[in-house]
């Protein structure tokens, strides 16, 4: 029934409930850690771009243009974990 709880929150525009859930998910049940993890992922996303290396913009453009929103959203979550893993600090030891 928890999915229904999230759907209801989305329906009534309760962004607080939704972001709390995202932080809990990304922080393995610890909201504060989840918030820090989100920041960490963005820092890790920033770092490889500081030297302005060539990137595959055509791939990015094509992906955004051709993939459905659910796949892109799913990719967003996967990229989060990909980036925090790259950071070398992995909090997901299951000790929630």
């Amino acid at each position: 029934m928890s999915l229904q709880y999230l759907k209801d929150a989305a329906d009534r525009g309760d962004a607080e409930a939704l972001i709390r859930y995202v932080r809990l998910h990304l922080g393995d049940g610890d909201e504060a850690r989840g918030r820090a993890e989100i920041d960490k992922a963005w820092v890790e996303a920033l770092k490889p771009l500081l030297d302005v290396p060539p990137t595959d913009r055509a791939f990015i453009h094509e992906t955004l243009a051709t993939k459905d929103p659910a796949t892109l959203a799913h990719l967003f979550f996967d990229l989060h974990f990909y980036l925090v893993k790259r950071s070398g600090e992995w909090i997901h030891d299951g000790n929630l």
């Binding site: 029934m1 928890s2 229904q4 709880y5 859930y21 809990l24 049940g29």
Partner: peptide, 10 residues
């Protein structure tokens, strides 16, 4: 109770 509070209804 802890899990249910964090993830209501799960």
């Amino acid at each position: 109770a802890t899990v249910n509070e964090r993830y209501p209804g799960s």
